[in-house]
Design a protein around this nucleic acid. Structure first.
Length: 195
DNA sequence: CTATTGATGGTC
DNA sequence: ACCATCAATAGG
């Protein structure tokens, strides 16, 4: 099966919008990674929006550091970091240059190059299944190794929302419904009601 | 089935 | 000291 070429990748203008808009729009799109060992791809079925320096759940709220620098830059780049010493999380930088917002990719529906028994629900499993690690930090998603291509339409009725996972420390920001998933899709993480 | 815990390392 | 996590294990 042939997977789309990079020239069909979503343009930078797709990412140059507020994180909440991009988080919703990412549902149904296809994440593609061209690895040395072949192409791996999956449909995005769960995301979380991180809004900027005021969002206490966002790494950007601690200021611009070597780690968070990419979030403050132009949209359409990957922000990949290691969490709990073991798992990588992949984010997509969005909004305009200078606005530190991003969307965390939390779950995929396997499309190509992913093992039958391999799970893709949860941000750590997602990156492992696609072979994404810290070396992909700052990668341009408008390039030809790691990018997104358009997928099928997701009905607005199918989109579910809820609070983000694991951000209880973020005060009032923790309760805001900034997580999006495709209701009824069996590949969303099991902490998503209606999954 | 749910709840708890241990592994593990970069960031600040 | 703190985590945008996961898998294994213990408990009901």
């Amino acid at each position: 099966m042939m997977i789309s070429l990079s020239r069909t990748a979503l343009p930078r203008s797709f990412y140059a919008r507020p994180a909440l808009v991009v988080a919703r729009a990412l549902l149904g799109q296809v994440l593609v990674h061209e690895t040395d060992r072949g192409t791996r791809a999956g449909i995005i079925v769960e995301t979380e929006a991180y809004l900027g320096v005021d969002d206490l759940a966002s790494h950007a709220s601690r200021g611009r550091t070597a780690r968070t620098d990419v979030m403050f830059g132009p949209p359409g780049f990957a922000y990949v970091y290691l969490i709990y010493g073991m798992h990588h999380c992949m984010n997509v930088v969005c909004d305009r240059d200078g606005k530190a917002s991003a969307v965390l990719l939390r779950a995929l529906q396997p499309v190509h190059g992913i093992g039958e028994d391999e799970r893709t629900d949860g941000p750590g499993r997602l990156t492992r299944a696609l072979g994404i690690d810290r070396g992909h930090n700052r990668v341009d998603l408008c390039g030809d190794r790691l990018y997104l291509v358009p997928g099928g339409k997701v009905s607005p009725r199918a989109v579910a929302r809820g609070p983000r996972i694991g951000v209880d420390y973020a005060g009032a920001w923790a309760a805001k419904p900034f997580r999006f998933w495709i209701g009824g899709n069996p590949f969303v993480s099991r902490r998503s009601p209606g999954a």
